[in-house]
Simulated scan of single mutants.
Amino acid sequence: MSNQDTKTISAVETTFDILSALTKLEPVGLSELATHLDLPTSTLFIHLNTLVERDYVVKESGKYRRSFRFLEHGGSVRHRLDASRLLRNKVKELSDETGEIAGAGIEENGQRVILYRSSGEKAAGDEIPIGNHTEMHWTSLGKVILANLPREKRTSIVEEHGLPKGTDETLTSRDELESALERIREQGYAIDDEEHLRGVRGVAVPIFDEEDKVMVSLGITGPRDRFTSNYMARLLDMLRYTKNEIEVRSQYYEYSTIDG
């Protein structure tokens, strides 16, 4: 490894050394902390004053301690991990309960990416791996996200990737796609009727964060002959129930990590 690769900023290292020392000693006075770190009190004071001004350290009665701002950052990381674990578990539950292929998708660089996927006992021919990228307008997972993105983002995705044809059922007209996306937004779900793969249908719902921005999609796919309108309506009820549970519990994770 070259020296360029190992260069660090000494002032930042000092700040982290101070925070590590506070973990062991807080609340602690300036002189005691300077002795522990073998730093001049003048240098230490500047670092501490900066941390106090940025609300990462609190000074009370001449002693210093870390602020609850670190709890906020730690809670944010835990929230992300908990929400991800919840989504993965719900995908597995859906596949177990329906026997079909359940999956969760996200948008990345204008494409639909499979985040989680689980095959039930009735699933057949599932060769699409986790991490698979494909066109947003081809699948129910992709369309339901695309429909709920800001207009500018939707436009940029279509301009960059175009509307290539997957099957004879694929929407390849911008006007037709916009009309379809408007219906998806109004009804709250998307259907893939052999638009990506012949003989395969799917239904998906969007999952929103607390700011009503679409995060991921959740869907179920299977063979055309089994995925009749009535059957897909039952699957949609299950997806909506799971969607609501994920959204509520995800917000609970966020607030509980801050409050508790």
Rank of each mutant, 00 (worst) to 15 (best):
R65E: 11
A123C: 03
I157M: 07
M136K: 06
V28E: 13
H133M: 12
E182W: 03
I46G: 03
G166A: 11
L171W: 00
H36M: 09
R234F: 04
L19R: 09
T41Y: 01
H79Y: 13
D259A: 12
L141V: 05
L87P: 02
I157R: 03
F208V: 05
R183D: 14
G103V: 05
E169G: 00
S229F: 10
T221R: 14
T170R: 05
D212P: 04
T98I: 03
K165N: 07
T155S: 10
R154F: 00
G74T: 07
G131Y: 02
T228V: 06
Y231A: 05
S119A: 14
A190Q: 11
G125F: 06
G29W: 03
L146V: 09
G99R: 07
A104Q: 04
V77I: 15
G110K: 08
T228A: 06
A147F: 00
E254H: 07
F227D: 08
S67R: 09
Y116G: 05
A190K: 13
T134K: 07
A21W: 00
T167A: 05
L30A: 04
K213M: 07
R226E: 10
R224C: 06
E186Q: 14
N89K: 13
G99N: 07
K63G: 00
R240E: 15
V205Y: 00
